[in-house]
Design a protein around this nucleic acid. Sequence first.
DNA 1: CTCCTTTGCTCATACGTATGAGCAACTCAG
DNA 2: CTGAGTTGCTCATACGTATGAGCAAAGGAG
Lengths: 346, 346
Amino acid sequence: MTVPRRTKAPSQADVARLAGVSQSAVSRVISGDAATARIPEETRRRVFEAVRELGYVANPAARAMRKQRNNLVGVHTFERVFPHAREDFYFEFLLGIEERAEEIGFDLVLFTSTGAGGDGERKIYRNGTNRLNLADGSILLGVSTDRGELARLWYEGYPFVHIGRREVPGAEIPQIIPDYRAASGQIVERLAELGHRRLGYVREGIEMEPYDDRRTGYAEAVERLGLTDTSPGFRGTPNLDPKWLDEVARGGVTAVVVESVRLAQELRAGLAARDRKVPEDVSVAVLEGAPADLDGQWDSLVIPRIEIGRTAVDWLHAMLDDPKKRTESLLVPCPLIRGTTITALR
Amino acid sequence: MTVPRRTKAPSQADVARLAGVSQSAVSRVISGDAATARIPEETRRRVFEAVRELGYVANPAARAMRKQRNNLVGVHTFERVFPHAREDFYFEFLLGIEERAEEIGFDLVLFTSTGAGGDGERKIYRNGTNRLNLADGSILLGVSTDRGELARLWYEGYPFVHIGRREVPGAEIPQIIPDYRAASGQIVERLAELGHRRLGYVREGIEMEPYDDRRTGYAEAVERLGLTDTSPGFRGTPNLDPKWLDEVARGGVTAVVVESVRLAQELRAGLAARDRKVPEDVSVAVLEGAPADLDGQWDSLVIPRIEIGRTAVDWLHAMLDDPKKRTESLLVPCPLIRGTTITALR
DNA sequence: CTCCTTTGCTCATACGTATGAGCAACTCAG
DNA sequence: CTGAGTTGCTCATACGTATGAGCAAAGGAG
């Protein structure tokens, strides 16, 4: 009871044969060019009939070769996707990418190409070939992005966007970036509205591009609003300086902006040791996504990962039609979360 | 400081021109066919020189077209992947699929095709066309698999495997299935080794293919080892029958095999109400993945999801080269977990 | 100086799709 | 009943790569 089964995917030529027309007619019908090509309803029907019967679907390789469109969005991560999906890093980006791709009728290619070593680190270029070319354009993401490869990719003119900030000298990489600068500014504005005049800033020890944005946004807002920044940590030593904490406890600073939850917790502990409470004595805001904990919700910002994923798809989509866009980056607003760690100045 | 960017990637023809040879010579040098093709070292050097100078990379679309292979594995889920990835259903399968695909140099296409309704339910065939054809072959998974679509896909000869059991009349769907039958048999064997002679089986109310395998495995082993099955639930009423529980409590049954954790918990409660303890008075084994809880670890089996994902890729890979394999299914062994709910008969 | 073998390539073609150019048949105005 | 315009297609070709077939030149045997 084995049914005869085909062994090779049908081509337009097969469809054409069945429908009794030429291959080019089939192409025109399928690609919707029928109007310009003056194909009457009846012929179209026959062609679609044959398509259905044979289960024809366009060969992406051939289409990519001839056209410059596959309706495929590539996703390249510089590490494996799924082991990390659990942690929130890739997961929500992919969620947004999948959602939006589905909406605009694109499928997703997950590039899994590895480098030579089995260390899980991935490369775009493997023995000289760039597999991304199969997709119309790609979304790249990852913490360990290889800048050399990015530069080469950009130079070759391949359409792609990078999720997250990544500066590469000599190339203008299109990036989708959370607008930390604006968000930081807004937090300062809110503090100013609540009467705070003397602020502090606590920064992380490591240097990464996204922190620059936060610092710039903070500094600009402080300047613009005529406030005073009194933190040695801002331009000097990174972490929490005991002497400065003493000053905060004395009331020399009424609101502190910190770069991470970890630092915020340290700050709270340091103040508690000096008999000061958050937010009664000092308001605190956090410049990253800060989940609620036992002590309540930090006033903080949200990294809109899903939205970023969706935006990346749209941005890439726009780039495909307009090569001029291939050097433009995009900022995605970061919503603020109202928490319980900021109050009005007494 | 904008660098001049190429619009078009260089082809083998460009390389050939620069190296002063023909396109086919370039192809042979690059594809390593040079030995057979008798190209001397000097010419090869010139070609590679030109390749370097132009930054040539092979066009994967063209290569795929010529080779009739895209090196793409499709993944189609009948529901959205990512929202579900969190829950363990898809997640570990995908993990295995990605791992293995990476190892054998295949990329993944995630099909995002939706059906008509925006209800998140997905279809393979959209307005009559089969989008899967884009990939060389596909792995299908999902709880709400549409049997009609499976049958059609199979009939069309498209290479695919289904993860999990799914019987479709008239089609021999290649499936990757956890070997519940063998695992159930092994559990019975273990009980027999520990001295148990009178067993019971508690089954779920719903009927699904995977349960058939468990029941068969149990029944076969009981028969083979000359044991006695005394459960009304096995062929009669599904759940836990109070009268039968009384009999178990009386000692008429010393070991019980149940289909789910939920039933195992009910069983334990029912026995506790009759002053009997697990495993002191009655041994209990569970025929599904049963995480450890406060009361310890169930003797149970593991559904090797990662391994299944990996196997699915390999199986599909083999099918691509050998069409005869397109009707064969594969069993993946289920390891047993030693827990604290089985002991030797006193 | 023949004839044969080996070397070092080139030629031609196929893969499946998209598209500019063009052709035959028909319609309709004059 | 002629000429122009429209309709409904087909023809031919290009895209970039891989590969079987084949050809010219060089080298060697006799």
